[in-house]
Design a protein around this nucleic acid. Structure first.
Lengths: 233, 233
DNA sequence: CTCTCCTACAGGCTAGGCCAGTAGTCCTGT
DNA sequence: ACAGGACTACTGGCCTAGCCTGTAGGAGAG
C-alpha cells in the first residue's frame, strides 16, 4: 500500500481518477493475456488485490468497461469478455482525442446523404415547414453578421427529422457533438455561411420536390464543401 | 420508494443491476428538473440517501453516466451536466425498447453499404485474410449443421475493420446488438445460411478486387436478402 | 448411472470512515 | 477601507469489512 506509485506531483489539469487507470490496465491485460470473447476475467477480489485497489474502485472500473461494451458481468459467474478488445480501443480513442476530422466527416456524410434521400421520400408538410424555418433562421443570423451556426444545426436536425428514421436519428445525435465542431470550424471561414446557405436551399428544394436522388446528391456536395474547408487546416 | 417495478416478463437472463436503475432515475431526474448543461447534480451523499442506496453504488451509476458522456464529475465541486440530456435518452431508447426492425435494417444498410465500399478501397492483405477466415468459419459452422451465426458476425466485423473508419465502426458497434437479433432471425430460415454465405463471398470478392461500387452493390443486396426474411414475420 | 443437494466461490451492495480538493467567509495586517 | 491569507464547510475519492444472493461443480443418495 505504501509503495504508492506517484506518477505526477503536478497534474493540475489532469483529473486522474483511479478507475480510469484501471480501465487502461485491464484493457492492456486483456490484450496481453490474449483473452478471447467468452473468456472470464480473474475474480474481483483477486484483481483488486493484484492491482492494489479496493473492490469498490475495481467495481467502478468494471462498470465503465461494461458501459463501453467490453465485458458483461454476470452475478455468480464473473466478468466475461464480449467483443474483441479492438472495439474498446476504438471507443477509447473516440472519447480521448475525439477522433480525427476525416473519420467524423465520413460518418456524417454516410448518414446524412441517406437521411436526405429518405427525407425526400417521406417528408410531410410539417417537416418541410421546419426545414424552411431553419433556412429563415440561418438567413437572419447571417444578416446579423453571425455565422449562422444555430440555423445550420436546426437545418440538419430538420432534415434528420423529416427522414423519419429513429435509429439513424439516434446515431446522428451520437456523433452530434463532433459534427458541431466541424460545423463551427467550417463556418468560421469568410464567405462560408452564405455558400452553406445556398447549398442548404438546394437540398431543401430537392426534398420539397420529393426527389431522393437529387437530395442525396445535394447533401453529398454540401458536406464535401464543408469538410474541404475544415481539412485545409 | 418504488416497490419493485417489473418492466419485462422478457429478458430471461434478466440481470437487474442497481446502478443501471440509478442511471435511469438520474436521467429522469435531470429531465424533470430541467437541468441545463453546466448545472450541478445534488451532492453524492444527498443523492445516495434520497435514492436509498449506498454511496458506493451511486458512484458506480455516476461512472456510468460519465462514460456515457452525460456528466463530468469534478473533485471538490460536484457532477456537472455536459451535453443536452437528449444524448442520454438516445442511448436509453436504444437500450430499452431496442427500436423496431425496419429502422434497424435501415441504419444497418446505410452504414454497411458504405463500409463495404470503403473496405474495397482501403483493405490491407491482413484485412482480406480476416475476411477469408470469417468465411471459412461460417462454412465450417454450416457444414456442422449450425446456422453460422458466429461466422456471419465475424464476417461483418472483418469488413467493418477493413474500412478503417473508427467512427463508423463505433456506430456499428452501437447497433450491434440489434443487428445480431436480425441476423439470428434471418439465419433461422431453412436454406438461409447457405444463401447468406454465397452473398458474403460476393462481397469478399469485390473487396478483394478493390471494386468499391461492386462491394457496395453486393452488400446492399445481401442486406435486402437478409432483411426480407426478417420482415415477413 | 442419474439426480439431488451441498458448498465453495463468484459478484452485489451496504455501512462507515478518512483523505483531498474547492470555494466562500472571515479575520488580520497594512 | 481594503487586500491577503487562513479557516471551514462543503464537494468527491478511495478504503476496509462485512453480509447478501446467485452459480456451478462435486459428493452422496437413490
Amino acid at each position: 500500500m505504501t509503495d504508492a506509485v506517484d506518477p505526477q506531483p503536478l497534474g493540475r489539469l489532469a483529473r486522474p481518477r483511479l478507475y480510469e487507470q484501471l480501465v487502461e490496465q485491464l484493457l492492456g491485460y486483456i490484450e496481453s493475456a490474449r483473452l478471447r470473447p467468452g473468456d472470464l476475467l480473474p475474480a474481483e477480489r483477486d484483481l483488486a488485490e493484484r492491482l492494489g485497489v479496493s473492490r469498490a474502485t475495481l467495481a467502478q472500473a468494471l462498470v465503465a468497461l461494461e458501459v463501453l461494451g467490453v465485458i458483461d458481468v454476470q452475478h455468480g459467474t464473473g466478468a466475461v469478455l464480449r467483443h474483441r478488445a479492438s472495439v474498446a480501443s476504438v471507443i477509447k480513442g473516440l472519447r480521448e482525442h475525439r477522433s480525427r476530422l476525416p473519420d467524423i466527416v465520413e460518418a456524417r456524410s454516410t448518414l446524412e446523404v441517406r437521411l436526405a434521400a429518405l427525407a425526400a421520400e417521406r417528408r410531410t408538410d410539417a417537416d418541410l415547414a421546419a426545414i424552411d424555418d431553419a433556412l429563415r433562421t440561418m438567413q437572419a443570423e447571417i444578416d446579423d453578421g453571425d455565422r449562422g451556426a444555430h440555423g445550420d444545426e436546426l437545418f440538419h436536425q430538420a432534415v434528420t427529422g423529416a427522414a423519419h428514421s429513429p435509429v439513424m436519428a439516434q446515431l446522428m445525435a451520437f456523433i452530434g457533438e463532433m459534427v458541431l465542431e466541424t460545423r463551427l470550424e467550417s463556418l468560421a471561414q469568410p464567405g462560408r455561411p452564405e455558400q452553406s446557405l445556398v447549398s442548404h436551399r438546394g437540398i431543401a428544394e430537392a426534398i420539397r420536390a420529393r426527389d431522393a436522388a437529387a437530395a442525396a446528391d445535394a447533401m453529398q456536395r454540401h458536406i464535401e464543401l464543408v469538410s474541404d474547408v475544415a481539412l485545409l487546416q
